[in-house]
Structures are given as C-alpha cells and as structure tokens.
Amino acid sequence: MPTAQEVLDACHRAADDHPADPTPWVVILGVLRRLRCSQREVFWAWNEVLRRDRWHRQAHLQMLGYLSPAECGSHMEMMDFIETAQARMPATAPINGLGLTAATRQYVRNLDMGGPSALMAKDQWRQPAGASALQRSLDWHRDPARPRHAATFADLNVLALALVAAQRTGEASDVFAARRGVVTPWPWNALGDPLMAYERESRRALR
C-alpha cells in the first residue's frame, strides 16, 4: 500500500502532466480530508478542483464530509457550504442531492450510535432541516424538465431510504420504481446487507 505522501506526490505529477484534469486534485482533496489537514490546505485543493470543474460531484461530497461536525468542521460550516452550493448550482449540476446526503449521513450516524439516538433517528425527517432537504430532493426528481446526470440512480437510492425512514411509503414507491432496480451499497448498508435491505424496503413500499 502506498503511503499518503506517495499518493500526493503521484497526484501532483499527474496534475502537472494534465493541468486541465480535476481528477488528481479530487484525490488530493480526499487524502487531505482523510489526514484531517487544516482548512487552509483542504480549501487550497478544493479551489484547484473548482478552477477545473465548478460542480464536480465527488469533490463536493468530500467537502461535505470534511466540513461536517463528525470530522473537521461544524454544523454551521456544513450548512453554509450546502446553502451556498444550492443557491448557485445550475439545473444541470450533479449535486442537487447535497442537502439530503448530509441529512442521510446524520440519520445513519444516529442509527450507528444505537440506544435512544437510534430510536429517535427517524424524528429528524419531521424537523425543519431534514424535512426541507427531503422535500427539495423529492421535488427535483419529480420535475420532468430537470436534466438527469450519471449519478441520478445514486441520488435516488438516498432519496428512497430517506422516504422510507420518514415513513412516507407512498412517495417512496414512486422513487423505487424510478430506480429500475439499481442498488447502491450506501446508504442501504446502514440497514444491513444492502441488497437484502433494498429488497425488504422496496417490497414494503410497493405493497
């Protein structure tokens, strides 16, 4: 296994060879996040990505994790990041599910904590922040005029689980149908084996 420094060195060489490609900078961003580096270092890599691809999906997800209170940020920093992105993103941006992803990550963390946190986890979908993120994502996917992107099925998996968790089974059934059987490991692995969890929840919703 290469060390973090070896990965960073390789990425810098790739960035020099292909200056217009955001991919090396996205990997650098991910390594700096894993190392829990300072915000100065992380935002330096983030800005390099933005110079090449303003709406890079993976880079936004990396920053969402880094700025979360579970890692190196705070709830306020994470929400500011989401709100800024949502206010500026064009209709074609592949990050329309950013807010729901953050809410679902919190839901999964609460489940993992067990005890009262797990029992109360579903309540977050009735609170303003969770309900707003869920409704925004649902409205986005219901709009036939919205262009779809390559990761649409990944977003639909997150939306389906959130609707199930919120006990909105009628709306979940439409999302399950739109997914055409494509299952992503996350977030279903929060409920056990991803395929078994998906099949169980989709049967309940489609019943």
Rank of each mutant, 00 (worst) to 15 (best):
M1S: 15
E6S: 04
V7T: 14
L8Q: 02
L8P: 09
A10Q: 11
H12K: 12
D16E: 15
A20F: 05
W25D: 15
V27G: 10
I28E: 11
I28R: 11
L29Y: 00
L32M: 08
V42Y: 02
L50R: 15
L50W: 08
R52I: 04
W55M: 03
Q58H: 06
A59W: 02
A59S: 10
H60S: 08
L61D: 12
M63Y: 00
Y66Q: 08
S68D: 13
S68V: 12
M78N: 01
M78L: 05
M78Q: 09
M79T: 12
D80I: 04
F81N: 03
F81K: 02
I82R: 02
I82S: 00
E83K: 10
R88A: 12
A91V: 08
A93T: 04
P94T: 07
N96D: 06
N96M: 01
L98C: 11
L98M: 09
L100D: 00
A103Y: 12
Q106R: 09
L111A: 06
L111Q: 07
D112C: 00
P116C: 14
P116Y: 14
L119F: 09
K122W: 01
Q124L: 15
Q124N: 09
W125H: 14
Q127Y: 14
P128T: 02
P128N: 06
P128A: 03
P128D: 04
P128V: 10
A129Y: 08
G130Y: 08
L134C: 10
R136T: 08
S137K: 00
L138S: 06
R142A: 07
R146M: 15
P147F: 03
R148C: 07
A150E: 11
F153A: 06
L159C: 11
L159Y: 04
A160L: 01
L161I: 05
L163M: 03
L163K: 02
R168D: 08
T169D: 05
E171H: 10
S173K: 01
S173A: 13
V175C: 13
V175A: 14
R180C: 13
V182I: 13
W186F: 10
N189Y: 03
N189Q: 05
N189A: 04
N189G: 01
L191I: 03
L191Y: 06
G192L: 07
P194R: 00
A197E: 15
Y198Q: 08
R200D: 02
E201F: 00
S202W: 07
S202E: 13
R204I: 13
